[in-house]
């Protein structure tokens, strides 16, 4: 019997799916994502202790996964798609976008919006600054709440709330840009630069 290993397995098992979804976002290929998850488990095991307050928190596993991704990003950047930013870099990203935090969101025609949402969302997401993309990935793929994201990014919950608000706003603005371009293309088919669905 190995109760510590069993406790570790019982703690990790419910989070495999979310860690995998997150790893798929951080890593470039499914193979790299599988390696990322495996390395996360091994590092977590090496540091797992039932007396360690953080050890039973889901966010702790995400912190480890993010640290592995950071190490990989430094050593072999080709394996990493979302580069975790350090706090100073993230603050710069946010400040650059903080001039009008609660300005009205760009208006969008709802029917048209739904029509193009599927294929343009990935492009809009990829076009976001890395720091914005990461908070959305942590929130949606990692299904972490704001308190957990604050633990992962080591910042106050209020900061997470404002970062996510600005990230979603930036995403919405990019989607509105795509929608405007799409409308322009559909009105003037054959316009150079409007062909294809890239």
């Amino acid at each position: 019997m190995n109760s510590l290993a069993s406790a570790f397995e019982a703690f990790v098992a419910p989070h495999v799916r979310r860690l995998w979804a997150l790893a798929r976002q951080y890593a470039r290929t499914p193979e790299d994502a599988a390696d990322l998850v495996q390395e996360t488990f091994l590092r977590a095991w090496r540091n797992f202790s039932p007396t360690h307050e953080m050890a039973y928190r889901r966010a702790w596993l995400v912190v480890i996964l993010r640290n592995v991704a950071t190490d990989w990003g430094r050593a072999e950047r080709r394996r990493i798609r979302v580069t975790p930013l350090d706090d100073a870099e993230l603050t710069e990203v946010i400040l650059a976008d903080a001039t009008q935090p609660f300005a009205p969101l760009p208006a969008m025609d709802e029917a048209r919006f739904r029509e193009f949402l599927d294929d343009r969302l990935v492009a809009a997401l990829d076009a976001l600054p890395a720091g914005f993309r990461e908070v959305i990935v942590l929130s949606v793929a990692g299904e972490l709440n704001y308190r957990e994201i604050a633990e992962v990014l080591d910042c106050p919950v209020g900061t997470v709330m404002s970062r996510i608000g600005r990230a979603r706003r930036a995403l919405r603005e990019r989607l509105a840009d795509h929608a405007a371009k799409g409308r322009h293309c559909s009105q003037s088919s054959g316009t150079p630069g409007c062909g294809g669905s890239s």
């Binding site: 098992a13 495999v16 995998w20 495996q38 919006f113 739904r114 949402l117 969302l121 949606v140």
Partner: peptide, 27 residues
């Protein structure tokens, strides 16, 4: 809400089946 739902689909793609055996191998 639509964007959020769609984000959920995009960031959890159908082919992203969790490697359940990854944990089994590590254990």
């Amino acid at each position: 809400r639509s964007i959020r739902r769609q984000l959920g689909t995009v960031l959890n793609p159908q082919d992203a089946t969790a490697p359940q055996d990854a944990l089994a191998r590590v254990m």
